[in-house]
Amino acid sequence: MSDSFEPVIIGFTCNWCSYRAADHAGMTRTQYPPNARLIRLMCSGRLDPTFVLKALADGADGVLIAGCHPGECHYLEQNYKALRRHRLLQRTLAQFGIEPERVRLAWASAAEGVKFAAEISEMVEEVRKLGPLNWPARPRPLATVPADIPVLSEVAA
C-alpha cells in the first residue's frame, strides 16, 4: 500500500514571494511532484494555525507554510510571526502525535522557483515515508436513537 501512497499537501504561500516562486518554477519549467495544492495568502503572517489544523483534520497528509526569507518580508517583519506560530504549532502538534515533518516552514523568494520546487519535493518524500495521516473523521451527530440500540438493562444481563 505504502508504495502507491501519494501524500496530499496543502501549501500556504505568500503573495509576494513563495506564490511567485511557484509561478517562477512554472516559468522555468522546474518539475516537482504534483502532491501540493497551494493557497495564496497576502503574507505568511496571515497564516492562522487553524488553517493547518483544519487541513490536517480534513484529510491533508502535510502542510507547507512558505514565506519570504527572514528580513525580506514585503510587510517588513510579518514572516517572523509565521515563524513563531510555526514553532509553537509544532510543539502542540507533537502532543497530538503528529510528526514535525508534516508541517514544514520554508522560505522562498520570488526568484527561487527551484528552491520552492525542491522544498516541495523534499517534503513529499518525507511525508511519503511517514505514510498517510488519515485523520479520523469528526463524528456526525445522530438526532435519534438508532433502532437497534439495546436497552441498558439488557446490556447488563
Partner: peptide, 19 residues
C-alpha cells in the same frame, strides 16, 4: 474564504465534515 478553499482542495480526500 480560506476554510472553504481548504475544503474544496481536499474535496476528494476529505472526510465527512462536522455538521
Amino acid at each position: 474564504q480560506l476554510f472553504a478553499q481548504i475544503e474544496g482542495l481536499l474535496r476528494e480526500v476529505r472526510h465527512e465534515t462536522e455538521v
